[in-house]
């Protein structure tokens, strides 16, 4: 089986410091893969390497095309969306302007459906419709995360990289966020690579999970298996074996 995203021997770093060491990874069509790992394990760098915002070596193939050396802007236009850590909303622009900027990377064939998609997005996130004339900077953390997701969806991506969506959100809000992800996957036929520290919540929506430590994949397994492996979580995710630090639902 060939996946939508095929990564082999990926290396990446900043300046002289290498952060990712020869990493292999596959994401299949319509699959949600959780990337787990402690702070500094390399989750964000992995996502940045894939979206071209960090220089990377090794092989990245997306939908059958090699992405190495392609500019971030071009990668975005090839159907790979990236919701960065901290959301990256344009705070001075209105909510609707933010969402509309997503259209830029849309495949030309789907341009005509942009307005329909905007309605669908507003139906999924009604709060964004209410606030559409407000500056994005006025939104709460959870609303900004929705906005970032909505903006990425407007590009009609085939694969969405999402970096720590639960960061800084209240437990209830972040639980909402994860259930929305499962829904979006169905409605938009998305694949998702989800980097998260919150292993419990993300493994609930993911099909598979990989665990990173010091820039290497140390475990890869179906989500249910990973979720059940308390020893692994204790070793790499900084959870106590009884799982008390995970967000309980």
């Amino acid at each position: 089986m060939t996946g939508l995203l095929e990564v082999t021997g990926l290396t990446a770093g900043y300046g002289g410091v290498r952060v990712l060491h020869s990493m292999d990874l596959t994401v299949a069509e319509n699959e949600i893969v959780a990337v787990l790992g402690a702070n500094g394990a390399g989750k964000t760098t992995l996502l940045r390497a894939l979206s071209g915002t960090v220089k990377a070596g090794g092989g990245i193939s997306f939908a059958g095309r090699a992405l190495n050396g392609t500019s971030a802007a071009r990668i975005a236009r090839s159907g790979l969306g990236h919701v960065p850590q901290g959301r990256g909303t344009f705070t001075a622009l209105t909510v609707e302007e933010n969402v509309r900027l997503g259209v830029i990377s849309r495949p030309a064939s789907t341009r005509a459906q942009a307005d329909g998609d905007l309605d669908r997005i507003y139906d999924t996130f009604p709060v964004l419709r209410e606030m559409r004339r407000r500056p994005a900077g006025a939104l709460s953390g959870g609303q900004q995360q929705m906005l970032a997701l909505a903006r990425a969806l407007m590009a009609r991506p085939r694969l969405l990289l999402i970096d720590e969506p639960s960061l800084g959100l209240a437990p209830l809000t972040s639980a909402d966020m994860f259930s929305v992800l499962a829904r979006l996957r169905e409605e938009w036929s998305l694949s998702v690579l989800l980097a998260e520290q919150n292993a419990r919540a993300s493994l609930k929506v993911a099909d598979r999970g990989i665990v990173l430590a010091r820039g290497r994949v140390v475990a890869a397994a179906p989500a249910a298996e990973l979720a059940a492996d308390a020893g692994l979580r204790a070793a790499y995710l900084g959870e106590s074996p009884d799982g008390l630090t995970g967000v309980s639902s």
Binding site: S51, T53, A72, A73, R74, A76, R77, G81, H82, P84, G88, T89, F90, T91, A92, L93, E97, L101, G102, I104, S105, R151, A155
Partner: peptide, 15 residues
């Protein structure tokens, strides 16, 4: 305006 506001995000959106 997007580039002025947040160049990194703008790049991620294909600008």
């Amino acid at each position: 305006r997007a580039v002025a506001d947040n160049p990194d995000s703008a790049r991620l959106l294909g600008i």
